[in-house]
Amino acid sequence: MRLVFMGTPDFAVPALHALHAAGHEIVAVYSQPPRPAGRGKALRASPVQQAAEALGLPVRHPAKLRKNEEEWAAFAALEADAAVVAAYGLILPQVMLDTPRLGCLNIHASLLPRWRGASPIQSAILAGDTQSGVTIMQMEAGLDTGPMLLSGAVPITTDTTATSLHDALSALGGQLAVRVLAEQPTPTPQPEEGVTYAPLLTREDGRLDWTQSATALDLRVRALTPWPGTFTLLADGTVLKIGGAIPLPHHKHTATPGTALDDALTIACGEGALRLTRLQKPGRGMMEAEAFLRGQPMPADTRLYHTLPAASA
Protein backbone atom coordinates (compact mmCIF):
# COMPACT_ATOMS: atom_id res chain seq x y z
CA MET A 1 0.00 0.00 0.00
CA ARG A 2 0.94 3.62 -0.40
CA LEU A 3 1.21 4.95 3.13
CA VAL A 4 1.83 8.19 4.92
CA PHE A 5 3.34 7.72 8.37
CA MET A 6 2.84 10.41 11.01
CA GLY A 7 4.70 10.30 14.33
CA THR A 8 7.26 12.12 16.43
CA PRO A 9 8.72 10.39 19.56
CA ASP A 10 10.54 7.12 20.18
CA PHE A 11 7.20 5.37 20.71
CA ALA A 12 6.39 5.66 17.00
CA VAL A 13 9.72 4.43 15.58
CA PRO A 14 9.06 0.65 15.79
CA ALA A 15 5.81 1.10 13.86
CA LEU A 16 7.62 2.98 11.10
CA HIS A 17 10.22 0.21 10.89
CA ALA A 18 7.56 -2.53 10.93
CA LEU A 19 5.54 -0.95 8.11
CA HIS A 20 8.67 -0.40 6.04
CA ALA A 21 9.85 -3.98 6.63
CA ALA A 22 6.41 -5.28 5.60
CA GLY A 23 6.99 -3.86 2.14
CA HIS A 24 4.59 -0.93 2.18
CA GLU A 25 5.49 2.09 0.08
CA ILE A 26 5.85 4.93 2.58
CA VAL A 27 5.46 7.97 0.36
CA ALA A 28 6.02 10.51 3.14
CA VAL A 29 6.73 10.71 6.85
CA TYR A 30 5.27 13.58 8.87
CA SER A 31 6.92 14.57 12.14
CA GLN A 32 6.98 17.66 14.30
CA PRO A 33 9.67 20.20 13.41
CA PRO A 34 13.18 19.94 14.87
CA ARG A 35 13.42 21.51 18.35
CA PRO A 36 16.29 23.13 20.26
CA ALA A 37 17.95 20.55 22.50
CA GLY A 38 21.03 20.09 24.63
CA ARG A 39 23.20 22.76 26.23
CA GLY A 40 23.88 24.47 22.93
CA LYS A 41 20.17 24.49 22.01
CA ALA A 42 20.99 23.27 18.52
CA LEU A 43 18.00 22.09 16.49
CA ARG A 44 17.47 18.35 16.85
CA ALA A 45 15.25 16.26 14.59
CA SER A 46 12.66 14.04 16.25
CA PRO A 47 13.34 10.31 16.66
CA VAL A 48 10.85 9.56 13.87
CA GLN A 49 12.50 12.01 11.49
CA GLN A 50 15.90 10.52 12.24
CA ALA A 51 14.57 7.00 11.64
CA ALA A 52 12.85 8.05 8.41
CA GLU A 53 15.96 9.71 7.04
CA ALA A 54 18.01 6.61 7.88
CA LEU A 55 15.54 4.62 5.75
CA GLY A 56 15.78 7.14 2.93
CA LEU A 57 12.18 8.29 3.32
CA PRO A 58 11.02 11.85 2.59
CA VAL A 59 10.07 13.84 5.69
CA ARG A 60 7.67 16.74 6.08
CA HIS A 61 7.44 18.71 9.32
CA PRO A 62 4.87 21.50 9.09
CA ALA A 63 4.56 23.62 12.22
CA LYS A 64 0.78 23.48 12.00
CA LEU A 65 -1.99 21.73 10.09
CA ARG A 66 -4.97 23.85 11.12
CA LYS A 67 -5.93 26.31 8.36
CA ASN A 68 -2.89 25.18 6.38
CA GLU A 69 -4.39 24.71 2.93
CA GLU A 70 -1.00 24.39 1.31
CA GLU A 71 -0.22 21.38 3.48
CA TRP A 72 -3.66 19.89 2.86
CA ALA A 73 -2.98 20.01 -0.86
CA ALA A 74 0.47 18.46 -0.44
CA PHE A 75 -1.05 15.67 1.66
CA ALA A 76 -3.73 14.98 -0.96
CA ALA A 77 -1.14 14.93 -3.74
CA LEU A 78 0.54 11.95 -2.08
CA GLU A 79 -2.49 9.82 -3.09
CA ALA A 80 -2.01 7.55 -0.08
CA ASP A 81 -4.13 4.50 0.56
CA ALA A 82 -3.90 5.16 4.31
CA ALA A 83 -2.14 7.27 6.89
CA VAL A 84 -0.81 5.58 10.01
CA VAL A 85 -0.52 7.93 12.98
CA ALA A 86 1.41 7.26 16.20
CA ALA A 87 1.93 10.01 18.79
CA TYR A 88 2.28 12.64 16.08
CA GLY A 89 1.39 15.56 18.34
CA LEU A 90 -0.66 17.66 15.91
CA ILE A 91 -4.42 17.42 15.43
CA LEU A 92 -5.40 16.36 11.92
CA PRO A 93 -8.21 18.50 10.48
CA GLN A 94 -11.20 16.68 8.99
CA VAL A 95 -10.09 17.41 5.44
CA MET A 96 -6.91 15.38 6.06
CA LEU A 97 -8.74 12.60 7.91
CA ASP A 98 -10.93 12.16 4.83
CA THR A 99 -8.15 12.24 2.22
CA PRO A 100 -6.58 8.73 2.19
CA ARG A 101 -8.64 5.98 0.55
CA LEU A 102 -8.74 3.93 3.79
CA GLY A 103 -8.66 6.95 6.07
CA CYS A 104 -6.23 7.60 8.93
CA LEU A 105 -5.39 4.88 11.45
CA ASN A 106 -4.14 5.70 14.93
CA ILE A 107 -1.90 3.55 17.12
CA HIS A 108 -3.13 4.35 20.64
CA ALA A 109 -1.32 3.04 23.72
CA SER A 110 -4.30 1.77 25.69
CA LEU A 111 -7.20 -0.65 25.53
CA LEU A 112 -9.83 1.82 24.43
CA PRO A 113 -12.15 3.23 25.62
CA ARG A 114 -10.01 3.19 28.79
CA TRP A 115 -7.41 5.95 28.89
CA ARG A 116 -8.25 8.16 26.00
CA GLY A 117 -5.98 11.19 25.95
CA ALA A 118 -2.41 12.30 26.46
CA SER A 119 -0.87 9.96 29.07
CA PRO A 120 -2.34 6.47 28.68
CA ILE A 121 0.84 4.60 29.67
CA GLN A 122 1.42 6.55 32.89
CA SER A 123 -2.27 6.64 33.78
CA ALA A 124 -2.67 2.87 33.52
CA ILE A 125 0.19 2.23 35.97
CA LEU A 126 -0.85 5.04 38.28
CA ALA A 127 -4.38 3.64 38.54
CA GLY A 128 -3.10 0.18 39.45
CA ASP A 129 -4.44 -1.44 36.26
CA THR A 130 -3.40 -5.07 35.75
CA GLN A 131 -3.15 -4.74 31.99
CA SER A 132 -2.67 -2.22 29.24
CA GLY A 133 -2.41 -2.60 25.49
CA VAL A 134 -2.61 -1.02 22.09
CA THR A 135 -5.70 -0.23 20.06
CA ILE A 136 -5.61 0.53 16.36
CA MET A 137 -8.56 2.79 15.61
CA GLN A 138 -10.03 4.65 12.68
CA MET A 139 -9.45 8.32 13.39
CA GLU A 140 -12.27 10.82 13.62
CA ALA A 141 -12.61 14.35 14.96
CA GLY A 142 -13.18 13.34 18.64
CA LEU A 143 -10.44 12.65 21.18
CA ASP A 144 -9.60 8.96 20.64
CA THR A 145 -13.27 8.19 19.99
CA GLY A 146 -12.98 6.46 16.61
CA PRO A 147 -14.10 2.88 15.91
CA MET A 148 -11.64 0.14 16.85
CA LEU A 149 -9.97 -2.12 14.30
CA LEU A 150 -7.66 -4.32 16.36
CA SER A 151 -6.21 -4.45 19.86
CA GLY A 152 -3.69 -6.42 21.87
CA ALA A 153 -3.06 -6.59 25.62
CA VAL A 154 0.10 -6.45 27.74
CA PRO A 155 0.11 -7.35 31.47
CA ILE A 156 1.10 -4.78 34.09
CA THR A 157 2.97 -6.40 36.97
CA THR A 158 4.44 -5.07 40.19
CA ASP A 159 7.72 -4.57 38.29
CA THR A 160 6.25 -2.68 35.34
CA THR A 161 7.52 0.85 34.86
CA ALA A 162 6.51 3.54 32.40
CA THR A 163 9.69 2.77 30.46
CA SER A 164 9.13 -0.99 30.22
CA LEU A 165 5.45 -0.56 29.34
CA HIS A 166 6.28 2.11 26.76
CA ASP A 167 8.73 -0.25 25.05
CA ALA A 168 6.33 -3.21 25.08
CA LEU A 169 3.42 -1.18 23.68
CA SER A 170 5.64 0.50 21.11
CA ALA A 171 6.68 -2.86 19.66
CA LEU A 172 3.11 -4.20 19.83
CA GLY A 173 1.78 -1.13 18.03
CA GLY A 174 3.99 -1.82 15.04
CA GLN A 175 2.88 -5.45 14.87
CA LEU A 176 -0.81 -4.55 15.07
CA ALA A 177 -0.51 -1.81 12.44
CA VAL A 178 0.93 -4.30 9.95
CA ARG A 179 -1.88 -6.76 10.73
CA VAL A 180 -4.61 -4.16 10.31
CA LEU A 181 -3.39 -3.20 6.86
CA ALA A 182 -3.14 -6.85 5.82
CA GLU A 183 -6.44 -8.02 7.31
CA GLN A 184 -8.54 -4.82 7.06
CA PRO A 185 -10.90 -5.84 9.91
CA THR A 186 -14.38 -4.37 10.22
CA PRO A 187 -14.39 -1.31 12.51
CA THR A 188 -16.17 -1.77 15.85
CA PRO A 189 -17.64 1.26 17.66
CA GLN A 190 -16.15 1.92 21.07
CA PRO A 191 -18.47 1.01 23.96
CA GLU A 192 -19.99 3.92 25.82
CA GLU A 193 -19.19 2.45 29.22
CA GLY A 194 -15.70 2.23 30.67
CA VAL A 195 -14.47 5.52 29.24
CA THR A 196 -11.63 7.12 31.20
CA TYR A 197 -9.31 10.01 30.32
CA ALA A 198 -5.55 10.26 30.68
CA PRO A 199 -4.65 13.90 31.40
CA LEU A 200 -1.70 15.91 30.19
CA LEU A 201 0.90 15.47 32.93
CA THR A 202 2.91 18.23 34.58
CA ARG A 203 5.88 18.30 36.94
CA GLU A 204 3.54 18.76 39.90
CA ASP A 205 2.05 15.33 39.29
CA GLY A 206 5.38 13.90 40.44
CA ARG A 207 5.30 15.50 43.89
CA LEU A 208 5.21 12.67 46.45
CA ASP A 209 2.62 12.91 49.22
CA TRP A 210 3.91 10.81 52.10
CA THR A 211 0.48 10.56 53.69
CA GLN A 212 -0.47 8.20 50.88
CA SER A 213 0.11 4.46 51.17
CA ALA A 214 3.39 2.84 50.17
CA THR A 215 1.53 1.02 47.41
CA ALA A 216 0.16 4.25 45.95
CA LEU A 217 3.55 5.97 46.11
CA ASP A 218 5.25 3.01 44.43
CA LEU A 219 2.72 3.22 41.60
CA ARG A 220 3.46 6.93 41.21
CA VAL A 221 7.22 6.39 41.05
CA ARG A 222 6.88 3.60 38.49
CA ALA A 223 4.31 5.51 36.44
CA LEU A 224 6.03 8.88 36.30
CA THR A 225 9.70 7.87 35.92
CA PRO A 226 11.47 9.12 33.87
CA TRP A 227 8.88 11.75 32.89
CA PRO A 228 7.71 14.02 34.43
CA GLY A 229 9.64 12.42 37.30
CA THR A 230 8.79 12.07 40.98
CA PHE A 231 10.33 14.17 43.73
CA THR A 232 10.29 15.08 47.40
CA LEU A 233 11.78 17.91 49.46
CA LEU A 234 14.38 18.06 52.21
CA ALA A 235 13.88 20.51 55.09
CA ASP A 236 16.19 23.07 53.45
CA GLY A 237 14.13 23.02 50.26
CA THR A 238 16.47 20.76 48.28
CA VAL A 239 14.57 18.80 45.65
CA LEU A 240 15.30 15.08 45.60
CA LYS A 241 14.21 13.25 42.48
CA ILE A 242 13.19 9.66 43.13
CA GLY A 243 13.95 7.22 40.34
CA GLY A 244 13.14 3.92 42.00
CA ALA A 245 11.64 2.48 45.18
CA ILE A 246 10.49 -0.73 46.84
CA PRO A 247 7.11 -0.69 48.61
CA LEU A 248 6.86 -2.23 52.06
CA PRO A 249 3.08 -2.15 52.45
CA HIS A 250 2.99 -4.22 55.65
CA HIS A 251 5.72 -2.31 57.48
CA LYS A 252 4.33 -1.24 60.87
CA HIS A 253 5.40 2.09 62.36
CA THR A 254 4.06 5.03 64.32
CA ALA A 255 6.22 7.70 62.67
CA THR A 256 5.02 10.82 60.92
CA PRO A 257 4.70 10.18 57.17
CA GLY A 258 7.87 11.28 55.40
CA THR A 259 10.18 10.32 58.28
CA ALA A 260 13.21 8.11 57.63
CA LEU A 261 12.76 4.95 59.74
CA ASP A 262 16.42 3.90 59.46
CA ASP A 263 19.64 4.99 57.77
CA ALA A 264 18.84 2.98 54.60
CA LEU A 265 16.22 5.31 53.10
CA THR A 266 13.15 3.49 54.42
CA ILE A 267 10.53 6.25 54.56
CA ALA A 268 7.31 6.15 56.58
CA CYS A 269 4.14 6.44 54.53
CA GLY A 270 0.53 6.91 55.54
CA GLU A 271 0.32 3.14 55.36
CA GLY A 272 3.47 1.02 55.20
CA ALA A 273 6.85 2.33 54.12
CA LEU A 274 8.77 3.01 50.92
CA ARG A 275 12.45 2.12 50.55
CA LEU A 276 14.09 4.51 48.09
CA THR A 277 16.51 2.79 45.72
CA ARG A 278 17.46 5.51 43.20
CA LEU A 279 17.79 9.25 43.92
CA GLN A 280 19.10 12.42 42.32
CA LYS A 281 20.11 15.77 43.81
CA PRO A 282 20.10 18.99 41.76
CA GLY A 283 23.06 19.14 39.40
CA ARG A 284 23.87 15.45 39.83
CA GLY A 285 22.95 12.30 37.94
CA MET A 286 20.51 9.68 39.13
CA MET A 287 22.33 7.19 41.37
CA GLU A 288 21.71 4.04 43.35
CA ALA A 289 20.84 4.48 47.02
CA GLU A 290 24.17 3.12 48.28
CA ALA A 291 26.14 5.63 46.20
CA PHE A 292 23.79 8.45 47.17
CA LEU A 293 24.20 7.77 50.88
CA ARG A 294 27.97 7.89 50.61
CA GLY A 295 27.68 11.53 49.56
CA GLN A 296 24.69 12.47 51.73
CA PRO A 297 23.87 10.28 54.72
CA MET A 298 20.21 10.37 55.75
CA PRO A 299 19.96 9.03 59.30
CA ALA A 300 16.79 7.89 60.96
CA ASP A 301 14.33 10.71 61.77
CA THR A 302 15.36 12.75 58.69
CA ARG A 303 12.20 14.31 57.28
CA LEU A 304 11.11 14.39 53.67
CA TYR A 305 8.29 16.72 52.69
CA HIS A 306 5.50 16.99 50.17
CA THR A 307 5.50 20.76 50.70
CA LEU A 308 7.62 22.61 53.23
CA PRO A 309 6.03 23.85 56.45
CA ALA A 310 5.15 27.55 56.20
CA ALA A 311 7.86 28.55 58.69
CA SER A 312 10.54 26.83 56.57
CA ALA A 313 9.35 27.98 53.15
Rank of each mutant, 00 (worst) to 15 (best):
D218C: 06
A214T: 05
T230W: 01
A273T: 12
P185H: 13
L265P: 08
L261R: 12
C269D: 02
P226N: 07
T232W: 02
L200A: 14
L261I: 12
G243P: 03
T215G: 09
V221N: 02
R275A: 10
T230R: 02
D263H: 14
G237H: 07
D263P: 03
L219Q: 14
Q184I: 10
R278C: 01
L200G: 07
Q280P: 03
A273R: 10
T254W: 11
P199S: 11
V221Y: 00
A255T: 04
G270N: 12
D205Q: 12
A268F: 11
Q184F: 08
T259L: 06
V195Y: 09
G283Y: 08
E183Y: 10
P191C: 13
L201D: 11
P191Y: 09
T186A: 15
I246M: 10
A198S: 15
L248F: 13
D205H: 15
P191T: 14
D218P: 00
P282W: 01
R275C: 06
T266F: 04
T211E: 13
P228Q: 05
L265T: 08
L276K: 02
G244T: 03
D218G: 08
G194W: 08
A245Y: 01
D262L: 08
E204I: 01
T186V: 15
D262N: 15
L201S: 13
P228N: 03
L276V: 09
L248V: 03
G258M: 06
P282R: 05
G244D: 06
K241D: 07
A235V: 06
I246S: 07
L279C: 07
L265E: 06
S213Q: 10
K252N: 00
G244P: 04
L265I: 10
G237F: 04
L234N: 07
E271I: 02
L274W: 10
P226H: 03
A182G: 08
L200R: 15
P282V: 01
A182Q: 15
A182N: 14
F231A: 10
L224N: 00
G194Q: 10
D262I: 10
Q184T: 14
S213Y: 05
E193D: 15
A273Y: 09
A216S: 09
K241P: 00
L240Q: 05
A268K: 09
G272F: 05
A235N: 05
D209V: 02
Q212M: 13
R203C: 04
I242G: 00
P199I: 13
L234V: 00
T254K: 12
D205E: 13
A260K: 04
T215D: 11
L219K: 08
H253D: 04
L201P: 11
R278A: 14
G206C: 05
T225A: 03
I242H: 00
G272W: 05
R284N: 11
P247L: 12
H251K: 11
T225E: 12
